[in-house]
Simulated assay, not measured.
Amino acid sequence: MKTWKKTSAVAAVALVASATLAGCGSAPEKKAGAKTDFLPCMVSDAGGFDDHSFNQLSYEGFKDAAKELGADSKQFESKTANDYTPAINQFVNQGCDAIVTVGFALSAATVEAAKANPKIDFILIDDAADNDFNGKKDAENIKPILYNTAQAAFLAGYAAADYTKTGVVGTYGGQPYPTVTIFMDGFKQGIDYYNKEKGKKVKLVGWEGNNKGVFTGGFDANEKATNTAKQILDQNADVILPVGGPIYQGALTAIKDSGKDIALVGVDADFYETDPNTRPLVLTSILKNMKQSTMEAVLAAGKGNFDPNSYIGTLENNGVGLAPFHNFESKINPALPGELDKVKAGIIDGSIKVNSYLNAQ
């Protein structure tokens, strides 16, 4: 039985006709000269489509699918949680055939809309759509897209433990949602495994497990995010993992202010590629292949092959992974990449156990 609580849906507030629901321009014509009338739509979490993280990756996959289908599309960029329900309902009223909602915070609003509109395909990213906490999704017309990022975070924890010079590694999150703490759990397990295998005592600060850790209370790149990162760095951590979309930007500020040699670990996307400002600092990133999985789900819906079964990204199916070390290639232990390959193989074949809430899915 799951014990966490998800954010409740905010009461619907009618959107006026001039709301900022953005429709994109005409898509390229298909080879046959005809354009599909399938209309996919997307609602972002409050981080926006330019968060260099999960909203952006999902949006890119969504747009690629629309382009391949030859479909027009509509998207709405949420600013606050108050936007979720009205935006989804507006897309229902505009005749969207598939509605993609990005992030666990939209789960309640998505479930409510799916129950009321069983003929619309809903794709919910980063949540199991089980708001009743019974282990089963709450509407049959929702496809949950999930990622067992604990597996990839395990590799990042191992790498961080091998890299640290102070013997202290840190992490903090936005809010204690399962899709946030799964990173922190895997990261801790990777450090623990490294210590066991190497006879080391690398310390993790900011996360003890069992929902005991350091959180900013939200997902904004604000002063709280910076101060939280400073709290971690003040404990002598020289590798830091911020989990929660834009909150990593607070870590960038904290690292700069510290004047110390600190390495950053990214989440969701390869920060080196999505945010050039991180390039001097990012050791590696814990990847979710959100772009590909979102694209495939929308393509299936557009071709009349909507599959409501849950998708879970793993190391084995390349749904999660670890980014290259990029500028840190010359700074890491030369033996580390080979060791990580062995650890990855052990996770895939089951000889190395990685615990996460998704193991029971």
Rank of each mutant, 00 (worst) to 15 (best):
residue 231 Q to E: 15
residue 217 G to P: 12
residue 148 N to H: 09
residue 327 N to M: 13
residue 51 D to I: 11
residue 223 E to Y: 00
residue 319 G to N: 02
residue 121 D to W: 15
residue 321 G to W: 13
residue 304 G to A: 08
residue 299 L to G: 10
residue 302 G to N: 11
residue 102 V to T: 13
residue 286 I to E: 03
residue 59 Y to F: 15
residue 78 S to V: 02
residue 81 A to H: 06
residue 139 A to G: 11
residue 308 P to E: 09
residue 328 F to H: 06
residue 64 D to Q: 04
residue 334 P to F: 02
residue 48 G to M: 09
residue 268 D to H: 14
residue 182 I to P: 01
residue 328 F to Y: 15
residue 236 N to G: 00
residue 295 M to W: 03
residue 109 A to W: 09
residue 318 N to R: 12
residue 182 I to C: 07
residue 11 A to N: 15
residue 323 A to R: 01
residue 271 F to E: 06
residue 43 V to E: 12
residue 253 T to Y: 01
residue 312 I to W: 05
residue 288 K to A: 03
residue 295 M to Q: 14
residue 121 D to Q: 15
residue 36 T to V: 15
residue 313 G to Q: 00
residue 343 V to K: 11
residue 97 D to Q: 14
residue 19 A to W: 00
residue 261 D to N: 12
residue 287 L to M: 02
residue 237 A to V: 02
residue 138 D to V: 02
residue 72 D to W: 03
residue 325 F to I: 11
residue 90 Q to W: 07
residue 114 A to W: 15
residue 206 G to Q: 04
residue 210 N to A: 05
residue 96 C to R: 02
residue 114 A to H: 15
residue 16 V to G: 03
residue 221 A to T: 12
residue 37 D to H: 08
residue 326 H to W: 11
residue 292 Q to P: 00
residue 40 P to G: 08
residue 48 G to A: 08
residue 224 K to M: 06
residue 39 L to E: 10
residue 172 Y to L: 00
residue 120 I to H: 09
residue 67 K to E: 07
residue 143 K to P: 00
residue 29 E to H: 14
residue 65 A to F: 11
residue 93 N to M: 07
residue 235 Q to V: 05
residue 111 V to Q: 03
residue 274 T to W: 12
residue 86 P to G: 07
residue 36 T to R: 14
residue 307 D to L: 05
residue 361 Q to H: 09
residue 237 A to L: 10
residue 334 P to A: 05
residue 110 T to Y: 09
residue 322 L to P: 06
residue 334 P to V: 00
residue 278 T to K: 11
residue 267 V to I: 13
residue 28 P to H: 04
residue 214 V to D: 11
residue 289 N to H: 05
residue 301 A to K: 10
residue 360 A to D: 07
residue 243 V to D: 10
residue 109 A to Q: 05
residue 294 T to G: 09
residue 352 I to M: 03
residue 317 N to V: 09
residue 208 E to Q: 14
residue 21 L to P: 09
residue 321 G to S: 12
residue 133 F to M: 03
residue 128 A to N: 08
residue 215 F to T: 02
residue 4 W to P: 01
residue 303 K to N: 08
residue 61 G to E: 14
residue 242 P to F: 10
residue 186 G to K: 01
residue 292 Q to M: 10
residue 291 K to Y: 06
residue 357 Y to P: 09
residue 200 K to D: 15
residue 261 D to G: 00
residue 30 K to E: 15
residue 320 V to Y: 05
residue 261 D to F: 10
residue 117 N to C: 13
residue 44 S to M: 14
residue 113 A to H: 10
residue 359 N to C: 05
residue 27 A to I: 02
residue 48 G to D: 14
residue 280 P to I: 06
residue 81 A to K: 05
residue 68 E to Q: 13
residue 178 P to A: 07
residue 179 T to A: 03
residue 196 K to P: 06
residue 254 A to G: 14
residue 211 N to M: 08
residue 239 V to F: 05
residue 244 G to H: 01
residue 321 G to N: 12
residue 49 F to E: 03
residue 172 Y to H: 08
residue 86 P to F: 00
residue 218 G to N: 15
residue 248 Y to S: 07
residue 103 G to A: 06
residue 340 L to H: 07
residue 288 K to H: 02
residue 291 K to E: 13
residue 166 T to P: 14
residue 310 S to R: 06
residue 75 Q to A: 10
residue 85 T to K: 15
residue 55 N to C: 04
residue 225 A to Y: 10
residue 198 K to A: 04
residue 189 Q to L: 05
residue 145 I to Y: 05
residue 37 D to A: 11
residue 35 K to C: 14
residue 143 K to G: 07
residue 179 T to G: 02
